[in-house]
């Protein structure tokens, strides 16, 4: 008897909601109407996304969510952070629960095509590495033949590891683990000789050890892990907004626009590219359904790409990552944004 009541209520809720929902609207309209951006983030990854003691989300990925919210809604705080696990992140995006996924997800062919998502850029170029104890006496991944290796299941790292060892004609024993924290614990307890994950994760893990000096990260990077924001397939306008917000942050660093001097530059810069970017001339925002100053607000939210990097994962933080591949193309890195014109 009770059951039928429940199902009845369930079905009715569904129908009512169906009637109420607007049809055929773009993601931009939905977000504007809602007044909030639903941004899928990691449930917790050091430096990239984590809530602090007051529940405020912070990190490298979170900063991009803020920038998009600032560009679209004019307020960087209008973000609903939806924590997603590695198991449900893509479903959460394709099912419409979130508008944008910024969850250190590797851009791969099958994810882009088969899973009906669009990766719109790369905000961090990562790669898979190895960490070993110093007293193991290993200085190269090529010497890991026969080693026991701790590896997270269900990630691209697992496949990369198998590929790498096969290509180099070596064998290994995998100790599979579910989360990063478990992996660290297994590695510290000596259950495996080496721990492998993305190099950024290794650096953060090593930095948190009681004795970081006794562990080394091997020089080999065995895979390409371009981590980037993803949106649903099919809404190109929304994809463009996210792509160009990221590009605006990168361009801002290239042109020396920081959160400190942005107002001054917007008012007085003579550089035509800077003027177009900040909306002092032309009206680039209108081409994708935004106003003139969208990029200015996005950059103001947490600073340009370099500022975000230094504040969340850069060399001044405990994680201490070097820019490496994530430097501007002018500095020998891979960050290269198409021109704003």
């Amino acid at each position: 008897m009770k059951k039928s009541v429940l199902f009845g209520a369930l079905a009715a809720t569904t129908m009512l909601a169906g009637a109420a929902a607007a049809q055929g609207t773009t993601t931009l309209d939905t977000v504007k109407a809602r007044g909030e951006l639903n941004c899928g983030v990691n449930t917790g990854l050091v430096g990239f996304a984590a809530p602090d003691a007051n529940g405020n989300w912070q990190g490298f990925d979170v900063a991009l969510c803020k920038a998009v919210a600032a560009a679209v809604l004019g307020d960087a705080s209008k973000v609903v952070y939806v924590p997603t696990t590695s198991a449900d992140r893509f479903e959460t995006l394709t099912s419409g629960k979130i508008d944008l996924l910024v969850r250190n997800s590797t851009w791969t062919f099958s994810r882009d095509n088969d899973l009906k998502m669009d990766f719109v850029g790369v905000n961090y170029y990562d790669g898979q590495g190895f960490m070993v104890r110093k007293d193991l006496g290993v200085s190269s991944a090529k010497e890991l033949n026969g080693a026991t290796i701790c590896i997270q299941t269900g990630t691209t790292t697992e496949l990369n590891l198998a590929d790498y060892f096969k290509a180099n004609n070596m064998t290994y024993t995998a100790v599979t683990i579910e989360t990063n924290a478990e992996g660290e614990q297994q590695y510290i307890a000596g259950a495996c000789d080496a721990y492998t994950t993305d190099a950024s994760g290794l650096a953060a893990t090593r930095a948190a050890f009681a004795d970081p000096e006794n562990h080394i990260i091997l020089p080999e990077i065995i895979s390409k892990e371009p981590l980037g924001p993803a949106v649903r397939h099919g809404d190109n306008q929304w994809g463009d907004i996210v792509r160009w917000t990221l590009n605006a942050l990168i361009a801002a660093e290239e042109y020396g626009i920081t959160s400190a001097n942005i107002d001054e530059l917007a008012a007085s810069s003579q550089n035509p590219e800077v003027k177009r970017l900040l909306g002092s001339s032309d009206d680039l925002g209108a081409m994708m359904g935004l106003d003139k100053e969208w990029a200015k607000r996005a950059i103001k939210a947490s600073g340009n790409y370099g500022e975000i990097f230094e504040a969340t994962i850069g060399s001044a933080t405990p994680i201490g990552l070097a820019r490496g591949l994530n430097a501007q193309w002018t500095q020998g890195g891979l960050l290269y944004t198409p021109p704003f014109r």
Binding site: N42, G44, G47, A204, A207
Partner: peptide
């Protein structure tokens, strides 16, 4: 979430 902050990682 707590472990994901630099303060309490590890």
């Amino acid at each position: 979430a707590v472990r994901a902050t630099t303060d309490w990682k590890g």
